[in-house]
Design a binder for these strands. Structure first.
Lengths: 144, 144
DNA sequence: GCTTTATTGCAAATAATTTGCATTTCCAAA
DNA sequence: TTTGGAAATGCAAATTATTTGCAATAAAGC
């Protein structure tokens, strides 16, 4: 594990932007702060609504544009779970996969080195090099 | 490899439809025949174009509607790979996952019982019951 | 402070998919 | 084998998620 803290500061994001020669605007700061809190995986609209509470001038386009930039810079990840809009997540911890609660929509993170390794093996056998991958489990709480 | 037949007949589909009290129309027959050939994972538009060659009266809506019905009946699977429209696949063989060639868009099927088992374990640990899941590897051919 | 250029908001455009409705067609029963 | 009623179709318009053009605004280095 390379990172000791569970949720990094907005300044991490700012560093990313600065490093890419991009500007740190008022609206970006607001959006980034929300993402930096972490904890959940909001979609663009949710992000927009939360941001609007802090800065009513913000627009949905800006949210989308900011997500695109941050994704390109590798600072966030975009997930498109089944049958829904894209949802975004701050990338600070190590890679993980997701279990989506079908009843609540909640996203639970997990990680399995064994699965990671198996994936590599499989790709290799097929003559491929993995660029990215996604593993999503959709399920419901077992009430037994 | 655990697959016995490589492509089932259209009549399998017809059985599904009949069994559900649904009608077998000219356009459905055409669409189903295309899917039954198997071999690839066409999206709605591709399906529509191929179908239109055999029956020019067919409409894109009908393709979408047919996909929805068949999906509900469990006769096909809908995949939404990263950044693209949904693609459909005839369900005749056993479950498998997908490796998407990022350069060609080709879809390679694979399956790993070990991964399947690990997924179950993980869900159980988290207190969940898996309803469905998806595992997709995105990669490029290794040219070493 | 001033200037340059990235960024913004807004509205309009796109892409994928769904839906309302009038019309056609399937198919089971007569 | 005709027929009646429900299911399915085609078309166009509606939705949903996201992107884009453009004129106005605002960061940031000087």
């Amino acid at each position: 594990m390379a990172k000791g803290r569970q949720n990094s500061e907005t300044s991490d994001f700012e560093a990313v932007l600065r490093g890419a020669g991009l500007r740190i605007t008022r609206q970006r700061r607001v959006i980034l702060a929300i993402l930096a809190e972490g904890g959940d995986h909001p979609d663009a609209l949710a992000l927009f609504r939360r941001a609007a509470r802090q800065d009513p001038t913000i627009s949905l386009s800006t949210v989308y544009r900011t997500m695109k930039v941050l994704e390109e810079k590798g600072a966030i990840q975009r997930h498109t779970f089944e049958g829904g809009p894209a949802r975004f997540e701050h990338v600070d911890s190590q890679h993980h996969d997701h279990l989506i609660d079908l009843d609540t929509g909640a996203v639970i993170e997990f990680r399995s080195d064994r699965i990671e390794r198996l994936q590599e093996e499989i790709a290799k056998e097929l003559g491929y090099e993995i660029v990215s991958h996604r593993l999503e489990l959709y399920g419901r709480r077992r009430k037994d």
